[in-house]
Nucleic acid binder design. Structure first.
Lengths: 197, 197
DNA sequence: ATTTTGTTAGACAAAAATGTTAATAAAAAT
DNA sequence: ATTTTTATTAACATTTTTGTCTAACAAAAT
């Protein structure tokens, strides 16, 4: 079974990911993707048959990678607080590289998201939520529906990065300055979540 | 100055707003919008010339309405804490009706957003931020860059609603149950922001 | 060497979406 | 009342985007 593997398939996926999730060109046409990758548009059909299937492949890859890294955090043998800190670090890093990834998920949930719904209510998340509840009992974090805790965590992490393209222009802060603000958030979020009264 | 004003123009805008920002059909074609409004597709060109201009009009209307209501909150003669509570109430209500509005702003920032950037760094926001700084001096809220305070506020409000379409499916919560969670957040967010240690 | 398999490219076809023009109907103005 | 303006529609044209088909090419296998 020969496989020449010229790397074109992966190149196309990487380029699409860059265009869609990093640069936010969510309506990128097959032509634009092909051009950016420096390949003929037909190659794209050869490997993925259709635009939709290419996009689906790109998205699936991205999600799988991220959720795997997050699962690792959640299952690691550390304290709840450390786990949370790790989750924040992993997630922020990913979001900084691909700020439009989540936005894409939301806008395309009707087209692509449906298939992805199954594999997200996973064991690691459940176990992490369980631990959160335990911590609430112990009093190290405020008592609330653990779903709120998760929502708060993801809100504080995601939203500023989702809005990054906008905020940079809005607040007239430079790329560097914005970077500094985001870096501060890692500590700030921990403070907000674990601040006990 | 004649103006028959059959209400068609407004009908088209309202319908487009519903489709785009409430139902999340961000790629709605002119045909789909026309059908949903029950008018001929040409009417849409008659009133707005092009699809882009229709969308721009819809978006501008929506943003202007919301930012006006928020400005009122920020300039009202009440305590900082009350102001914040009002902002949350106004914003949550709007977001619940049109959860895809912000998502649209982000994805289309390159196409439409550029014009809107000017009028957002407004006086009311500056004055609100100033008050936040004062509160930090007084010690009623934690000390931080006031931009962080604003980011936290909007994160905790927006994100769960942006993600609502996804979360409902993800956590397998009913519409009603999700509604309850969101209603709880109004109080919860205030607690997080104004919790002093 | 030639057959086979995998890969790339060009030309063409089809579909989907937008935009234009001209004709018709309805209302307001004179 | 008839003329003019505004609103709406139907038919047509254009553009954009996707998808297919076939041929050319390269590398490995026989």
């Amino acid at each position: 079974m020969p496989l020449k593997n010229t790397g074109t398939e992966q190149l196309i996926k990487d380029t699409a990911k860059q265009l869609l999730f990093a640069e936010g060109k969510l309506h990128a046409t097959t032509q634009e993707i092909a051009d950016a990758a420096g390949v003929n548009r037909t190659a794209l059909h050869y490997y993925f048959r259709s635009r939709d299937q290419l996009i689906a492949a790109v998205f699936q890859d991205a999600m799988q990678g991220l959720s795997q890294r997050l699962d690792e955090c959640m299952l690691s043998e550390t304290s709840f607080k450390e786990k949370t800190a790790n989750i924040i670090a992993v997630f922020l890093k990913d979001m900084m590289a691909f700020p439009y990834q989540e936005t894409f998920l939301i806008t395309e949930i009707n087209t692509f998201g449906k298939k992805l719904i199954t594999n997200i209510q996973s064991e690691p998340v459940k176990s992490y939520l369980k631990e959160a509840t335990d911590e609430m009992e112990k009093g190290s974090i405020d008592k609330m529906d653990p779903i709120h805790f998760l929502m708060n965590l993801f809100s504080l992490m995601s939203y500023p990065l989702i809005m990054a393209p906008l905020y940079k222009k809005l607040f007239r802060v430079s790329e560097k300055e914005f970077q500094r603000l985001i870096n501060e958030r890692e500590r700030l979020i921990m403070n907000m979540l674990f601040k006990s009264c």
